[in-house]
Design a protein around this nucleic acid. Structure first.
Lengths: 248, 248
DNA sequence: ACCTGAACACCGTTCAAGT
DNA sequence: ACCTGAACACCGTTCAAGT
């Protein structure tokens, strides 16, 4: 039962389970060193800056030596997505709603600081020690609300998804691809769109664009927008808690 | 004002604005043909199956000829993410809540059918004709609720994000990377996790895992889970509408 | 047992040359 | 003006050989 349902090798290593190597020279590296180097490269040059050769050079080793520690580059990206997360905020003594808000904001901030996470995260299930610590803390914060474990997990995944979406939208507004074309903010986004939208085919949207939906001072990136959607979710959670008879 | 705030070239082409070419031989291709070929490849072999050479071969042209129509592979992916969306459901005569639910589900279904969208979508702002048609229809469905344009856009982006998250989670449960390791469903996911979780460091989560959170009959992929989070959101929207004094 | 260096198959993109 | 073919710089990954 222990051997049958084993985790993927990278995940095992992310949890510190290095294979017990006995004979021969001692390893010069471990997964944490490699992951840290890769994260530094990604922070500096984006995901395109992460090549096996580049990571290897940074830890002072030949490119091919990395394959002693990971099976593939994909595995490396999986480990990066977990390791980039800092420790979650401490839920001790906090009311659930305040903690969930802080938790979600902190998770979004990770992605604003490390935009490359957006390019790997969504398809990777959170099985590493860091991401699961976040999950554990959120579950703790919901003690006393009457929500069961399954509901808590669902709340966590919904909030994680929201953080991801918000970060992606915020990032898109400043996307270099659009700056290249002379569009630098929400303001120009709307103006450019107006040129192309047929009012007959897109009646509501083109009216909204002419009305200036995308021309707000800060537009998409506005903190108000983050709170808007977040409170939508938290209101929903609050209703559920009320139904379960938990305390607010 | 028309020239200054121009859209990126790909986006212009997505809107059918092919450059007016006069002299010389007529083009053999257009962006739609190229995009359709790329989508077929991605559906068949995943995003890894989409190479410039492969797409070119499928439309019967040398690899380098594609650069007459797009500036880079990234542009091609942008066009694919828009073109893969079918027409949105028709909102005519539907109550807002029912339409939003159908809209969100349909959007998630796109990603379940074309999982490769998950690997490009989150960083690409929706500026193509298809994605913006979806936005227009959702805005139409909210007529009479009292929500303003900005709020409607925020609702749309939040629901889109939710659809994306749900699809990603559902997809992760069946991720080949985990099947490779002998983990085929939610059941094994939980068992594998139990081996590695330290109950002292992860008290709530390890209790939940022992309690079988991840061992439900269908687990993550359950339709119940999709509706759970969706209703959280729609309850939030409903509260907002009530505050605005709109009709349900 | 760990690491290296050479090698392989493949990739996106450029550019000059053809029509 | 469109398309081709050769070429370039780079990539992830393998494998035999060294210690």
């Amino acid at each position: 039962m222990d051997q049958d349902r084993s985790l993927p090798p990278v995940v095992e290593r992310m949890w510190g389970r290095e294979p017990a190597s006995r004979r021969g020279p001692r390893p010069r590296l471990d997964l944490a060193m490699i992951t840290a180097a890769a994260i530094e490269l990604a922070d500096a040059d984006g995901i395109a800056g992460v090549s096996m050769a580049g990571v290897a050079a940074r830890v002072g080793v030949a490119a091919t030596a990395l394959y002693r520690y990971i099976d593939s580059k994909e595995d490396l990206l999986t480990a990066m997505a977990d390791a980039v997360a800092p420790l979650p905020p401490d839920p001790a003594g906090q009311p659930w709603r305040g903690y969930l808000a802080a938790w979600t904001r902190a998770q979004r901030d990770i992605m604003l600081e490390h935009p490359w996470v957006l390019t790997i995260s969504p398809l990777v299930p959170p099985m590493g020690p860091r991401r699961l610590l976040w999950l554990d803390r959120l579950m703790a914060a919901l003690d006393g609300t009457g929500l069961d474990d399954g509901e808590r997990v669902n709340v966590a995944s919904t909030l994680t998804g929201y953080a991801l979406t918000d970060a992606a939208v915020a990032f898109a507004a400043g996307d270099p691809a659009y700056e290249k074309a002379g569009i630098s903010g929400a303001d120009d986004f709307g103006a450019a769109l107006a040129d192309v939208l047929d009012p007959e085919a897109y009646p509501h949207l083109s009216a909204a664009v002419r009305g200036g939906v995308f021309s707000g001072a800060v537009g998409w990136v506005d903190d108000e927008d983050f709170l808007f959607g977040l409170n939508l979710l938290l209101d929903g959670v609050e209703q559920l808690i009320a139904r379960r008879g938990g305390v607010g």
